[in-house]
């Protein structure tokens, strides 16, 4: 008798807890602070974009939004952290194409895009080919003609073997049939003086990373790996114009752990959409060279599937598997 009643009690309590829980889930979201985990050190472009969005997101969501830096491990540390977080919409991660690349280059890190719930994509910056001011080439065609006539002669600096920019350079080789000599540097910063000093002939980087140097007159940009011209460098050719349909970019997308409730994803996406429409964020994007471009959670999910196919093929064909 006693036992049954205590069982009943336990059952009742369980039920009560569960129903309260589900009531909360449906009732109000968000009510606690939301954190955005940045896989890079403070000051990088993903950090700055997140911090520019932060006050606008707070306005739209009505709760505080925290930007947390979890650098290291080639962004696997932040991704693993968010992947394992409860899928309640209170923790997001901002990622670049690295998420699609490390699936193939660092398989033991156990990070793949399908462990995440897409939330929003707010903008991108196209990758391009940059060279020193007095280099003999003035546009993409001249460079490609030279590189085709002299295989392996063009030295191409990148920001580390297997990184985003190295992959972009390999992608250019695969599409155009030219052959570069790849020279990796530790991060994007040391590759820039190397191309200015003529130690390497070209570097692959992005408009956002190098716009200030192009504007400042210390680098010139030969061409962009984008489907259309970029508003920050409108007179620069794209590979597509020469008949090579390639697209490599760094982008700012936001993901949460897999299994987030659809309504919460929608609330978050709406907040991101509203934030990118504010004057403050628009001005910030202009200053940083970020091309605004919005993708809904569904579009972002599709995009990641395409990215996965693209990178998988590029990495396998390029012999870049570990």
């Amino acid at each position: 008798m006693r036992k049954t009643s205590s069982f009943l009690m336990a059952g009742l309590i369980m039920f009560g807890v569960l129903s309260v829980n589900s009531a909360v889930a449906q009732e109000k979201y968000p009510k606690d602070p939301i954190s955005i985990v940045v896989p890079y050190a403070a000051g990088g472009s993903h950090d700055l974009v997140a911090r520019a969005l932060q006050p606008q997101l707070e306005k739209a969501l009505g709760v505080s939004v925290l930007v947390e830096n979890k650098p290291g491990g080639g962004s696997t540390i932040a991704c693993n952290l968010v992947k394992a977080a409860p899928p309640n919409g209170y923790m997001l991660v901002t990622v670049s194409p690295t998420l699609s690349i490390i699936k193939y280059t660092l398989p033991e890190s156990n990070v793949t895009f399908d462990q995440f719930e897409p939330v929003a994509y707010v903008g991108y910056t196209p990758q391009g080919v940059f060279t020193r001011m007095d280099a003999p080439w003035n546009n993409l065609k001249e460079l490609l003609d030279y590189a085709r006539a002299n295989p392996g002669k063009v030295k191409c600096g990148n920001a580390g073997h297997g990184g985003n920019f190295h992959m972009g350079a390999v992608g250019i080789e695969q599409a155009t049939g030219v052959k570069f000599t790849h020279i990796p540097f530790k991060g994007a910063a040391p590759a820039v003086p190397a191309v200015m000093g003529g130690h390497v002939d070209i570097i692959v980087s992005t408009i956002a990373d190098t716009l200030h140097m192009v504007k400042g007159g210390s680098l010139k940009v030969l061409g962009l790996a984008a489907p259309e011209r970029n508003k920050f460098a409108p007179d620069v050719q794209t590979f597509k114009e020469l008949g090579y349909d390639i697209e490599f970019s760094t982008y700012w997308s936001y993901l949460g752990p897999k299994g987030m409730p659809k309504d919460r994803v929608k609330i978050l996406y709406d907040a991101f959409r509203k934030s990118t429409e504010t004057k403050e964020v628009k001005e910030f994007f202009d200053m940083q060279g970020v091309t605004p471009s919005l993708k809904s959670p569904e579009e972002l999910g599709e995009y990641y599937k395409k990215e996965d196919v693209k990178w998988g093929r590029l990495i396998k064909e390029g012999g870049l598997m570990p």
């Binding site: 491990g73 080639g74 660092l106 890190s109 073997h161 990796p184 570990p322």
Partner: peptide
């Protein structure tokens, strides 16, 4: 940086 090979990382992400 040059070859992408892991050295002394002991499979710990933090040591990448």
């Amino acid at each position: 940086t040059v070859s992408g090979v892991q050295r002394f990382t002991f499979s710990i992400n933090e040591f990448y």
